[in-house]
Nucleic acid binder design. Structure first.
Ligand SMILES: [Mn+2]
Ligand SMILES: [Mn+2]
Ligand SMILES: [Zn+2]
Ligand SMILES: [Zn+2]
Lengths: 142, 142
DNA sequence: AACGAAATTGAATGTGATTTTCAATTTCAG
DNA sequence: CTGAAATTGAAAATCACATTCAATTTCGTT
């Protein structure tokens, strides 16, 4: 069986929070983990539905929130549309406006500099978004 | 009469684009220019309505889009809520999640670094957003 | 295995910001 | 003035997201 680590993490989270271990939650986690990249709720719902036609959109939506709370998923929001990705180290994004391709980047210097700037104003940063929108190398051929 | 420069800029834009110079557009521009900071459509509509009760929300909304197209306004979108500010040099934002205060910042090093990163991927950046969300100095007292 | 309190599900509905529709009105070139 | 074209604004549509609630499922306890 695949995704054993993540399934145990979900089980632990559910137990600790007096939540129930349902087959829908397991199924949605499996489908989510099978997707690489940044997926919308609707997109994920379609993929879940292909395998489990009885699972509703609302359950997918709520389960993704649960997976975020459990630390297994991260919600991003590019230009107002929510997307989920499998949790991994902090990073920001380059987004192609033509083909939708998403490239991840990370830069310690930018992170340090933005924290220094916030510090000048006595501001405590809780989260941030840094997104670069444009055209990827393949989409510049037109 | 105030805002002469901006009014002429609007008039030029309207003429160049075969659009009409209406009293609503003038009135909304005046109210918009009288506000400092980052205002939502609804907020701006309320301010317009105080002086011009006959002007509808839709006209305010459409006029703000027009002012953006004309380069007089800039639309920002913090956590999914659109806000307008008077156009000025590029900058990014610190946003207090408690009181809503918005602080502007600019950092050439960050701008240069992000362009360098995009360059590594052959990516052409058309626009970007860099927003730091947290608590301002006044809101850390709780 | 059965019970029952509590959580979950999912279809339907609500929400809220934004965007579009369309008939009436206004603008402005000729 | 005239009339074609643009604009207005109330109403309705859209869209993603969020909530409701009756029916179902889970799971600790018998
Ligand atoms: Mn990512
Ligand atoms: Mn600003
Ligand atoms: Zn592309
Ligand atoms: Zn504050």
């Amino acid at each position: 069986m695949a995704n054993e680590v993540e399934k145990r993490a979900l089980a632990s989270y559910l137990e600790e929070h007096n939540l129930k271990h349902t087959r829908q939650r397991d199924a949605i986690l499996d489908v989510f983990l099978s997707v690489t990249g940044h997926v919308t709720s609707e997109d994920l719902y379609q993929r879940v539905r292909a395998e489990h036609p009885q699972i509703g959109y609302t359950t997918v939506y709520r389960t993704m929130r649960l997976l975020c709370d459990a630390g297994l998923a991260q919600e991003q929001s590019f230009d107002g549309l929510a997307r989920y990705e499998v949790s991994h180290a902090h990073h920001d994004h380059l987004i192609c406006l033509r083909c939708g391709k998403i490239i991840e980047f990370e830069c310690e210097m930018i992170e340090a500099t933005q924290n220094e700037i916030a510090g000048r104003y006595g501001f405590r940063v809780l989260r941030h978004r840094h997104e670069l929108y444009g055209h990827c190398v393949d989409c510049q051929k037109d």
